[in-house]
Every structure is written in C-alpha cells, then in structure tokens.
C-alpha cells in the first residue's frame, strides 16, 4: 500500500475546479515529481494533499488513513510537512530559530532533530546565527527544508524548490532531496525544471489542464516522445 494515495481528486481554491481528477501515489522512501506546463495544476495538486484546497471529489489517503478535508495543522501532526515555493523562511529570525519554529509542535529534547538537520545541511552549521533573510536563495531553500524536517515527517511536500536557483544550487538541492529520502522520508515535489527533475526522481507524473496526462518512471517519461514534445521542449 502506498504511503500517499490520491485518487481522482477534483477541487479548487474557490468555486471553480482547477483539478479535474488527479491521481498520484507516493510509496515509502520514494521521490515523486509532478511536472507539466504552466497552469496544469501542479502546485494545486500538492496543496490539495496539504488541506489547502476545497476538495470536491475523490479522496486522499495517507498512511492508511483518509485525510481528505483535514485542516493543515492536523495534517502536519499526522506526518506531512509542506515547504511553500515563496516566503518559506522566517526572514528576520536566525537559521537556528527557523529550525526551532519547525519543531514548535514537538516537546522534549530536540537535539537529535537539530543534529540530523545540520548533518543534511552542513553549510548551515556555520550560519546558524545568521538571519535567514540574509542568506542566498539556495541556502534559504535549505533552511526551508530543514524547518519542515524538524517535525520528522513521513512525507515532505516541496513546491518548486529550485525556482530561481543557479544550476549549481539546483544540483545541490536535488542531491539533498536524495539524502533526505535516504534518511527515510518520502518526497513529493513540483518542478519547473522538468528534464532535470525527471532525471533524478524515482517516478513522475505529467499533469495538463488539471488532470493526469502521463506517468511512469523518470527515465521512461524522459524517453517518451510525446512527453518530450509537449512539455520538455524537444
């Protein structure tokens, strides 16, 4: 049974349906990427998982429990963390304080969680007292991921983690995503850089106009002529 099973989900932010039936599964320790043209509903599909959408059809099952219609804070406590694309750090708080806020709901000794985060992001250790807003875009993205990992989630949702980053940082973020997966966290991410993302993920979904268009392993999708022509620019 997959960790996340999203079946035929329809819904939108207001009254209009942006998702017209999206089905996505994520297995344990799997990296799944959602790609597709602008306006395909990629980020919207991800937000549906996190309870940020009015879901009007279909169901979302996480870890054996239906979470359709749950409020985000309940979903967080169930083990799903979400990293928004923009404004995803506390700019006027230090790196370490960002992590502390990530662990806000946890009580007891968090030193193991801090160790894990600083192990995944060694660059941040030296910058732990710097304000998150003063860091480079790539490092801010790491802070955002670290904040989300403080709750020790089973599933991490990343909304375009490489948007606006240089190719060097993009590679680094992908590598860190793999490291996070190897640490036992499943990952669902939305990506604008479709080619690079499909090359590094386990499986991918191609969405178009709010519905599933193609799915398969990253390699298979990259090899698919139709996918290549439609979304990857040849």
């Amino acid at each position: 049974m997959p960790l996340l099973d999203m079946r035929d989900v329809r819904g939108g932010y207001g009254d209009a349906d942006i998702l017209q039936g999206v089905s996505i599964t994520v297995a344990e320790k799997e990296i799944v990427v959602i790609v597709g043209p602008n306006g395909a509903g990629k980020s919207t599909a991800m937000k549906a998982v996190f309870g940020l959408l009015n879901v009007r059809g279909g169901q979302i099952v996480f870890d054996g429990e239906e979470i359709t219609g749950w409020a985000p804070n309940r979903i967080v406590q169930r083990g799903v963390c979400y990293v928004p694309q923009v404004d995803n750090v506390f700019r006027e708080m230090t790196v370490h304080e960002n992590f502390e806020m990530g662990g806000f709901l946890r009580s007891g000794d968090l030193s193991a969680a801090y160790d894990r985060v600083y192990q995944l992001f060694p660059d941040l250790k030296a910058k732990r007292r710097n304000l998150a807003g003063d860091l480079s875009g790539g490092q801010r993205q790491m802070v955002a991921m670290g904040r989300a990992l403080m709750l020790d989630p089973k599933l991490l949702l990343l909304d375009e983690p490489t948007a606006g980053l240089s190719p060097k940082y993009m590679e680094q973020i992908f590598q860190i995503t793999r490291d996070v997966r190897d640490a036992g966290v499943s990952i669902l991410l939305v990506e604008q850089h479709a080619k690079q993302a499909l090359a590094f993920c386990d499986r991918g979904y191609v969405l178009a106009t709010g519905a599933n268009r193609h799915e398969g392993t990253g390699q298979a999708l990259l090899a698919d002529r139709e996918v290549a022509e439609m979304f990857l620019g040849g």
Binding site: V76, P84, V89, F90, E97, M101, G102, F104, R147, L151
Partner: peptide
C-alpha cells in the same frame, strides 16, 4: 516569544509550523 516573532515575520509559515 519566538512564536510571536514568527507570527510577525511570516504568519502563514507560522501557522504551517503549528503556531
């Protein structure tokens, strides 16, 4: 106190963090 600063800094993210 940190939760207050977080709410002032980025209210959406503070809520996502469970504040």
């Amino acid at each position: 106190g940190k939760a207050m600063r977080a709410m002032s800094d980025n209210p959406d993210l503070a809520r996502l963090s469970g504040v």
